[in-house]
Design a protein around this nucleic acid. Structure first.
Lengths: 240, 240
DNA sequence: TAGTGGTCTAGACCACATA
DNA sequence: ATGTGGTCTAGACCACTAG
């Protein structure tokens, strides 16, 4: 086998596990089969399955729980709540924001959005605008873009009826799980619209956060732009 | 052994390896002994040493190179250059900035700095101000605070004579290696000083980055505040 | 060719959760 | 008591690097 093609067994097992996750064979929050069962199924040793699962646990696709089993990660779990929202209060514990939905429309994808979501120009997309409030204080204004097809039933009513994290809703109701995202941050001056929404003066410095999220297979399925008011909060990041 | 105290063998080996790194037994860039040698030294199997090394490689303290050996990570390596500088150009490849040192003074630690560095109020500290330029464009203004004792010989001349990354100099000349850092980001308006240094108008939105860096044993050894001009650059972050 | 890390296996035993 | 993941071992063989 040529060296550029070489892929160790545990990597192949990892990929088959991802395929099972992607196909919905095991759903978020559920346990996957035990290591010994999987070893038997794939005809490899337990150690090889273990290494494959270790890799997926490191990627946060699976969660190991000693004595209980290995579970498919879910945005409904408490530990996942702050993985994709890095804003923290300057003082005190991080708290769950409440979201106020301002808008939810379907339209044809603008060129920029289409490119980021790997759609054809003119394909249908859903756009959402919302305001996140911490303890009643408007702190983040967000503009979200999703491909229309996988989120056909998404509407303002559906969003308003739900109180948890958006990604949890998308995971449960539409079977699309966000597993990774990349963000680009900038400092900008608040425009008219942002200023009104966040209750600050035009020109106030805001943290602009552009995000592209991906699901299984590195497929981009969300584009998001957020304006963060960092008067009493900050964006937290660990470098290692 | 009570469950709160339980520490697996590979974890103990990991800690002994860290101790050897901290004591300078193996220096940045050098190879550590082979897995079999270490297994013999510690009286455990190769597999256990392997797991300990895997953990340290995941923490970026060691770097594995198949066929060659395992090496102590160093800030002199190309792969480390952008681990602690997350600013990237909006267009094109990331390039190494040049730094212009504005100031380097020794003084008694202000209360805030002393607390962050776990010093006694009044202990000696070194403070550095510098400007990072990308392709000649001033883009980051930084104010750095280091404890005085470990960096006794640090001076403006020493800094100016050196052209590489600051952490590489601190590692080589003073034996202190930064291994981890946490950052807090905010958007702020440029004050008089920042505006002049960066060549922008007062009030221009800037990305304010506050960092605390740690060396072995989670000991904080650097406090840094940076003002990032995000006109043509952005702060990049991966969420997973 | 020798030495290094990388993969894979088989088996024993430990820690933890649940019934 | 049972079943799960977690640890540890010993040994065989593969992939890669360097002399």
């Amino acid at each position: 086998m040529s060296s550029v093609t070489f892929s160790p067994l545990y990597r192949q097992i990892r990929d088959r596990l991802v395929h099972s996750l992607q196909s919905g064979e095991w759903r978020p929050g559920e346990a996957i089969p035990s290591e010994l069962e999987l070893a038997a199924r794939y005809g490899v040793s337990q150690g090889t399955v273990r290494k494959a699962i270790d890799a997926l646990a490191a990627e946060n696709l699976l969660v190991r729980r000693q004595g209980r089993g290995t579970f498919v990660a879910s945005h409904h779990e408490a530990r996942a709540q702050f993985r994709f929202l890095r804003l923290r209060p300057d003082e005190g514990e991080a708290r769950q924001p409440t979201s106020r939905f301002l808008d939810c429309r379907r339209l044809r994808a603008p060129v920029e959005i289409a490119r980021a979501l790997e759609l054809k120009a003119g394909d249908s997309v859903v756009t959402i605008r919302r305001l996140l409030e911490f303890d009643g204080v408007p702190t983040v204004l967000e503009e979200i873009w999703l491909p229309g097809a996988p989120f056909r039933g998404l509407s303002a009513e559906r969003l308003t009826a739900y109180s948890g994290p958006l990604y949890a809703l998308l995971e449960t109701e539409f079977g699309t799980r966000m597993i990774r995202a990349s963000e680009r941050l900038r400092a900008v001056a608040a425009g008219e619209g942002e200023a009104v929404a966040l209750g600050v003066q035009t020109g106030t410095p805001l943290l602009l956060v552009d995000r592209v999220s991906q699901t299984y297979g590195d497929k981009p399925v969300e584009v998001r732009r957020g304006w963060y008011l960092t008067r009493d909060h900050h964006y937290f990041n660990e470098l290692s």
